[in-house]
């Protein structure tokens, strides 16, 4: 049987809605990975390694899923010549958001492989740092959504990303001061922990970069 022919307007409408759904799913994936990451690190700090491993695996899967979704969206944007003016910006936005997820996945993999020993006296601060970094990722996801759907709200969300990034810097510096001032840890352990703190800090940094880019794209769109 010949395939049923659809009206062109309906086809365009359906195609647009499918693509919008894919972009939303991509952002949902980043958000979900960020939450799983936060939960995973909590289990790690509680030394519940079985649960931690489950979360780490989940983050890895989500990272793969996000990659597939991103490629699909990018291909469709190009193949169907959508958004001729904003296409470059949208592509950069998706790729940079995906980079944040890559760092999250890379960090949790690091925890799983290298098993850094986190001393009890910084447990709370490390979790604070993870909370701030993931909060900046959550805000980043909201900012990207706003770029697509509600451009006037972008500014507020960017302010929140910046706030969380600053907070994570503050907590990160505090942790590094504490560990390098500690007399109970040897230098190798100090440097090992510091590397992970830097990784956690870079999550918020990358999220902030995405926010900065969006603020420029918004000007371009409203011009």
């Amino acid at each position: 049987m010949a395939p049923k022919k659809e009206c062109i307007v309906f086809r365009v409408f359906k195609r647009t809605k499918e693509l919008e759904a894919k972009i939303d799913e991509f952002l949902d994936t980043i958000l979900q990975a960020s939450l799983e990451f936060k939960q995973g690190i909590r289990y790690y700090l509680e030394e519940n390694f079985e649960e931690f491993s489950k979360r780490a695996e989940l983050v890895d899967k989500l990272e793969g899923k996000a990659d597939t979704l991103r490629r699909d969206v990018e291909n469709k944007l190009y193949a169907e010549m959508l958004l001729p003016e904003a296409r470059g910006d949208v592509l950069a936005l998706l790729e940079n958001s995906d980079n944040v997820l890559n760092i999250i996945a890379d960090t949790i993999l690091g925890f799983q492989v290298e098993r850094p020993k986190i001393p009890d006296f910084i447990d709370k601060y490390v979790f604070d740092l993870v909370s701030e970094s993931t909060a900046s990722v959550e805000e980043m996801v909201t900012t990207v959504r706003s770029y697509f759907k509600n451009i006037t709200a972008v500014r507020d969300h960017i302010t929140k990303i910046m706030f969380h990034e600053k907070e994570s810097d503050r907590v990160g510096n505090r942790i590094r001061m504490d560990i390098f001032n500690s007399k109970d840890l040897d230098l190798a352990q100090k440097i090992h922990i510091s590397t992970f703190i830097e990784k956690l800090l870079s999550i918020a940094d990358y999220a902030e970069d995405v926010g900065d880019r969006i603020s420029i794209y918004v000007i371009k769109r409203l011009d």
Binding site: V12, F148, K149, I151, R221
Partner: peptide, 17 residues
């Protein structure tokens, strides 16, 4: 555009139509 929330892709579609 500032006051009506419209998806970038929807805007693209409406502009084309």
């Amino acid at each position: 555009l500032k006051h009506v929330k419209i998806h970038l892709l929807d805007l693209d579609m409406y502009t084309r139509i």
